[in-house]
Design a protein around this nucleic acid. Sequence first.
DNA 1: CATACTTTTGACCCGTTGGTTAAATCAAAT
DNA 2: ATTTGATTTAACCAACGGGTCAAAAGTATG
Lengths: 202, 202
Amino acid sequence: MGEIPTNTEQNILNAAKKVFIEKGRQGTRMQEIANEAGINKALLHYYFRSKEKLFEAVFLEAFHKFLPQIEQLVESDRPFFEVLKFFIDNYINLIFENPHIPGFILHELSQNPDSIARFMSQRVSNLPKLYDKIEKEMTDGIIKPMDPRQILINLIGLCVFPFVAKPIVKSVFFQNDEEVYQSFLLDRKYQVYDFIVNSIKT
Amino acid sequence: MGEIPTNTEQNILNAAKKVFIEKGRQGTRMQEIANEAGINKALLHYYFRSKEKLFEAVFLEAFHKFLPQIEQLVESDRPFFEVLKFFIDNYINLIFENPHIPGFILHELSQNPDSIARFMSQRVSNLPKLYDKIEKEMTDGIIKPMDPRQILINLIGLCVFPFVAKPIVKSVFFQNDEEVYQSFLLDRKYQVYDFIVNSIKT
DNA sequence: CATACTTTTGACCCGTTGGTTAAATCAAAT
DNA sequence: ATTTGATTTAACCAACGGGTCAAAAGTATG
């Protein structure tokens, strides 16, 4: 019942994270994780019975790291635009530090769409509350009347897209110049905020 | 020198498209393509020497089908918002009919970012012309001054995201109801247009 | 029909890969 | 030091998967 992750266990998990997130479930070789962790392949199976188990551990962590952020939007009772700014700032920072995770999640989920039920469970509990909050801003005349879901999907899409489409964006718009692409990303959070606010404010 | 695709050759290509686009390069088994095409596995190698070759054929077709659409935006000399509407309508229709292709391209490119050079070549030739066109709309006071690239990236992202994130979007916002999700997508092209226009028009 | 050439197949090859196992090493605890 | 249990390893296994090959089936040409 070793609840505290062993040194090696954490070590394995870190290695697994790195390889799985970069290469995907199918592209990952257990041997490569072992190498990355500097241990024997059999040790992987000692700590995590199978590739499936190990993958699930990695995926779950990545998923929970990225999804529940949405709840930020409902917790605070500051003005909506303020919360929005705060959220975008946080979320893009998070992606910036883990640029491969969104693409990883998207790909693995579309490989196995039904598995999402296992991961979500009660996660979306307070989404209706968020809808209410947004709709109140509409009746208050602060933002244009529209389906709140459109706003939220646009919000996430605008944050995530430049990262999951990195090779294309970098190549098409920035002549494959990594530095220019990076400075574009740094500016991105303000651009996304302005873009959304300009669009939805009355 | 058989330039005209044989019946079987096209048959194989179709089967390969289906499997590769759904399962990805690594997730695809040659045997599954053979089954899908109703033929023997050895025949795959008779027509396409290797898995790599076959994959490349599939990827190239998918890539060319989806990327050059951007050029529409520069060809016409109608008012920008009109061209924009036309583009969004077309592009979302295209995705609607091939909903898995964008995710496929995104994933495979991020697995192999350098390969993009092979596929792009002179493709982005008239992108500067598009920038000029947009910037002219800015000096004409029709749209707000901003980096044209931000507009284009937002445009593509807003179109593509609901499809590549289908499982999450469908689950989080539509309780996994396929029909509701579909009707959301149908409405999407108008929403995206409004969202962008509202944001960038002066 | 006979020859030659293309298309298709079943059987096989062999490197890879996830997973197992039994033994060795290590770390307390007695 | 010896026992006991957890950790780590090398060697191995079976299945999988891409690719090959020789022969069969099909098709045209003389």
